[in-house]
Nucleic acid binder design. Structure first.
Lengths: 243, 243
DNA sequence: TTGCGACCTGTCAGTTGTGACAGCTTTTCT
DNA sequence: AGAAAAGCTGTCACAACTGACAGGTCGCAA
């Protein structure tokens, strides 16, 4: 990797908008000898049925629409791989020949010019999230394996940079409570999450029952939780008691 | 990246032991022109005070001991970066000159022959986890920046492979409950985590109060939780209601 | 020194969750 | 057909939590 290319990667980190990230990324993708890329980020938050989705890239729009409409995410080996593994997946024809629906899917991908490439994962940047990226070009996957393998390291690194930028730009990053808990509050919440009741928590912390309830009540108030259960959930989800 | 090297990377995935992973990784690291590497994985589980740690590599043992004894993890810019970012960090002298303790730390690193290199992150593979890897060699960091940048993509990719192998070998992967919850149980737990009480949950699911309690009771039993709070915590931590 | 934030404690009425008895239907797999 | 698993429902006593009133000390920074 020469310094010139490295600087291009680094410029992703200071981009002002997703559009700019997209544009730089496409530039790199082309330098690597590919024509399209797509980035996808999904976060499931429990208070909504609909997950939060960030998606951009240079895949043909029509293909993206098809993909979503047909729920290809359920069978797409790339999507499945990215959810469960850390290392990249090099596309091979065999991957897409297991079932009729998979073959249909791959035929469509081919017709859109995204049939040869690789997928990279950002395994769960945070709880209940998953993100990944694919880069692709037209043509037969098997015939161009070597070219794909050649750029694997660059693709993986690119994915890291893009994800970092997305997290920054969309402030998706560390879900954090607006109001931090004090040490005592954290201690009480932690113990409560372990299933201890107030009396036992009081004993463990060498304070009175009333005090435990006071702290837990403050914690609830701070995290905007109506009940102890919601407090636990919020605390875990927002990493309020984390690490 | 030639096929030969790629196969070496892939062989990490089928290694039978951490020792083997370590050996192959070292081989790659040397191919990249470096002399040492270290991999670190930390998981905090709330029922223990002590976090679970996986650590291996080819850093000098004496240095690792120093590092731990001196609690360098608290000031080491590499460790900090890896916890908060996705992209690699290229070591530069400036990084280690902010404070006296930092300069002392870096002087020691230098004396152990690990003063020039880069750090790569696996950002929180799962909740409350963090992992990363560094590769290094002796000499002045600033003077060899270009060589470090040159191998960044390979280092990042290597990190992915190593982490994947670690997860597999140590079965650290997806914390999962031994006993899965049924759909109804999950629904009840999910709503409970949102702070709803049993009566409201019953209304939402169009079932009776008694039934909600029955399901929650089963869920508690399955996850081995004594209380509703612990149930929520366990369910979130083990992804029992996940995604 | 005044104020603020973390920490600690008290009482009481009312709400909610839990455990220990139960028994019922429907679907799915063998 | 028979068993197992999922889902659903009932009652009662007791344990645990919550809200709304309070009250206090200590240390630190403006």
């Amino acid at each position: 990797m020469d310094k010139r290319l490295y600087q291009l990667y680094e410029s992703i980190l200071v981009a002002d908008s997703l559009t700019e990230v997209e544009q730089i990324t496409q530039q790199i993708v082309e330098k690597l000898g590919f024509s399209h890329f797509v980035y996808l980020f999904i976060r499931h938050s429990d208070n909504k049925t609909e997950p939060q989705v960030v998606q951009f890239g240079t895949y043909p729009k029509a293909w993206i629409e098809q993909y979503i409409a047909q729920r290809y995410d359920l069978i797409d080996p790339c999507a499945l791989h990215v959810r469960n593994h850390q290392q990249p997946l090099v596309w091979l024809n065999d991957l897409f020949s297991e079932s009729a629906s998979l073959r249909r899917y791959y035929a469509q991908a081919k017709s859109f010019g995204v049939s040869c490439g690789a997928s990279f994962a950002v395994v769960r940047a945070f709880p209940k999230e998953s993100a990944g990226m694919s880069i692709a070009k037209p043509g037969d996957a098997n015939e161009q394996v070597d070219e794909v393998i050649a750029i694997l390291p660059y693709g993986q690194l690119l994915t890291c940079y893009v994800h970092e930028a997305v997290v920054r730009l969309l402030k998706l990053s560390p879900p954090q409570p607006k109001r931090a808990l004090t040490e005592r509050e954290k201690a009480c919440v932690r113990l409560a999450a372990q299933g201890l009741n107030d009396t036992v928590i009081a004993d463990k912390l060498f304070i009175h029952l009333r005090t435990v309830r006071f702290h837990l009540s403050n914690a609830r108030e701070k995290l905007g939780a109506k009940t102890r259960s919601q407090l636990i959930a919020r605390a875990l989800e927002t990493n309020a008691i984390g690490l």
